[in-house]
Each structure stands twice: as C-alpha cells, then as structure tokens.
Amino acid sequence: MKRALLLAISLVFILAACVENEPKETGWEINQNNQNNQNNQNNQNNQNNNNNTVIVTPSTELDGMFVSGHLGNYLDCPEKGYDPNANVGAGSAPEPPEGEDGAGRLAGDCAEDGCTGILNCEAAQLTIRIENIGDIQADAVEIRSLRLFRFDGEFVAELPVVGVSNAETNELFEGDLPASDGLMLRVDFQGLSNAYELLTSEGDRGWGHGGVLEVEVGAENAPAITIESPELYVLDAVAT
C-alpha cells in the first residue's frame, strides 16, 4: 500500500520533472493559421482519391520562423536610431517599409559605411525564414510591420523597415515566393536610438532585458502571418 502510494507520488514527481525539463517554449508562434488552405488540401485529396468533382481554387499559404536578430546599437549615433517619442508631437506615423527617405534611410547608410568606423553604431537587423507551403506562387511577399514590445508585454514602438534581402545572396528581395519554396530573408530595420532606456523597467536590475519583435509578413494572395522573436538585445559593444 505504502509502496503503491510512493510509486504514485514518484510518478507525479517524474511527470513534473519532465514538464520542467521540457525545452522552454523557445519558439515563435505563427499566430494565424490558414485554416482554408488545409481544407483545400483535404478537398484536393478527396478529388484525387475519389475522382470527385469538387472545384478547388489553388491557394497559397505562408509559414515563417524566426532565425536571429538584434536591435542594433546606436549609442554613438543616436540620430541614426529611431525615437518613438520624437514622433508623438508631430503626429507622424513611422515611415512605411518602402519609404524612400526619412529615418529609415539613415540606418541604411549606417549599415553601409557610416558606422564601420564608429565604436557603437550598428544598424539593427533580423533574419527570418519564410516558406510557401501552398500550391501556387505567393506574390508581393513583404514585411508589413515590425512591432517592438518590452519583455513584460508592453508595446514600445513600430520600427521602420529599411530593406529586405535574401540573407544568403544579399540580393534585394523582390517579393515572389514560388510554391513549396523557402527563403532566408534579412530585414534591415531601424532600432531604437535609446533602447536601454525604453526597454528597461524599474526593478529590472537594469540592462537585463531586451525586447520582443512581432514581424508581420504579408503577401498579395496569402493571409498575413506574424512571426514572434524571442527576446532580442542591443548588439553588444564588446563581445567575448
């Protein structure tokens, strides 16, 4: 009896331990799943198997995952970073992703040359992987928004996208993603000019936290998806 009880307790313990040991939810969720497409695929299967006459419209569906990224470092070049407060009074929205000039442009310059000679001036950037798991090409795939949240969930800013390119070839990404194809994309964006101040909350021992990005990826002919990053940090001034 006692033995059985112990066994039971131990099992509970084991389960608890396993749950604890389960790798932490490290991922990034795709918040929106395209239910339709699944249905379509099912329909298609039916079609193939049963010689049915269900008519399906071929569709496309994006899947995406976060790979890596950082919030840049604008300590020595704050004017190249993004300051959400500077825009509040003016009431101007952040530059749209395709914006030709404005703040986003500066961060781009910074990535090209201006920054390399300065100590702490690094343009922010992230890498994601996008896959087209549908059956026709996805057109005009683009980054719709980059929303930055504090680690405790508080919204901080929508950050301007500077450019999107193929992470392996560095070629500008034109937006086409053929069916069953995948691509690593590098997104250059403008990080906060004062990330430390805006991302740290009281009682946080200071400097201990970064921010979480929600990357919304859309296409002309596919529902948008949101890729969530893990906590991202300012790029260290010194790393060893």
């Binding site: 790798p23 932490k24 490290t26 991922g27 990034w28 995952m65 976060f66 790979v67 890596s68 890498t127 992987r129 992470a167 392996e168 690593m184 201990g208 936290h209 970064g210 893990p230 906590e231 940090y233």
Partner: peptide, 25 residues
Amino acid sequence: KPELPYARKRLTAYGLERGGWDLLP
C-alpha cells in the same frame, strides 16, 4: 543560471527544433 541574459539569449536561439541560429548560413 538560465535566467541570466547571457543564458537566455542562447536558450532561445540555439539548438531549437524550429528556427533559431542553426538555420543561419
């Protein structure tokens, strides 16, 4: 000390089942 940022950075990015640094070129 998994709560340290040094550790969190790696735990959320390295050796993941999906995504993360393993995919980098």
